[in-house]
């Protein structure tokens, strides 16, 4: 693939009082180029005012989530060659907009904290000052290891149709983290954890639309975690 790639980029600064608009940029194609590479080319050579958030450029930090050609994806993890000549870049839906492609994750992370994403020990002293390593078998590890690959990039949260309609819903990421600790043999939270989401705006609002698992760049499969969590809640 030679020549130019057309980037259509969402531009909007809510504080400036201007209208949201799409701006076209032409970027020369390089082999192996990612969407993030293209956006950085725009920022360096064409328009310095473009706001983007990124850090590691290798799909580990989860900072550069954005809607690329209609689906939430990590810009650094998406090859231009798999999208074609015309690429449309928008900010992640379901997160409030800060500017251009940068979104506000405050609500997202507060929901993440609300599910207590840490090991709970019944012994208060042990909780604060652990005295030993907690060993577990391979089988015990298998029960949750998949869900611990989550990098909290927020793609599942922006793909979820329930979050769109009901902002109080914890979202796939928080629920998957909850199950990740619930299923961990070292965790003693037990039913106390389940009670965190067993309410009218909690786990019952998931209807298995599966979009979270479809867009997850790390293969975490939050939809699976949520259904397993619901099974645990249903069994009371």
């Amino acid at each position: 693939m030679e020549g130019k790639v057309v980037f259509t980029v969402f531009r909007h600064d809510p504080s400036a009082g201007e209208r949201p608009r799409f701006v076209r940029y032409e970027v020369p194609y390089r082999s192996g180029m990612t969407v993030l590479d293209g956006l950085l080319y725009i920022k360096e050579r064409i328009d310095h005012t473009l706001a983007i958030r990124y850090s590691c450029r290798m799909g580990i930090c989860g900072s550069c989530g954005m809607k690329v050609n209609g689906l939430p994806r990590l810009a650094c993890f998406t090859q231009v060659s798999e999208l074609g000549r015309s690429i449309k870049v928008e900010p992640l839906p379901n997160h409030p907009l800060v500017r251009d492609l940068v979104t506000d994750f405050t609500a997202f992370f507060s929901k993440h904290r609300a599910v207590k994403p840490w090991l709970i020990r019944k012994d208060a002293e042990e909780q604060e000052n652990p005295t030993r390593q907690y060993l577990q078998s391979d089988q015990e590890l298998e029960r949750y290891i998949q869900f611990s690959y989550c990098i909290s990039c927020g793609l599942c949260y922006s793909a979820c149709p329930v979050v769109t309609a009901l902002p109080e819903f914890p979202g796939p990421q928080a629920l998957a983290w909850l199950y990740r600790f619930y299923a961990d043999s070292r965790d003693q939270g037990g039913r106390e954890r389940l009670r965190l989401v067993d309410d009218a705006t909690g786990i019952w609002r998931c209807h298995f639309a599966g979009s979270c698992s479809q867009v997850c760049p790390k293969g975490v499969d939050p939809a699976l975690a949520i259904q397993l969590l619901r099974r645990a809640v249903l069994r009371g």
């Binding site: 329930v162 309609a165 009901l166 902002p167 109080e168 009218a200 705006t201 609002r205």
Partner: peptide, 14 residues
């Protein structure tokens, strides 16, 4: 009820 409470997340409406 489920559809409405997800579409219109207003407690008094629900």
């Amino acid at each position: 009820r489920v559809i409405l409470m997800e579409l219109i997340p207003n407690r008094s409406f629900v």
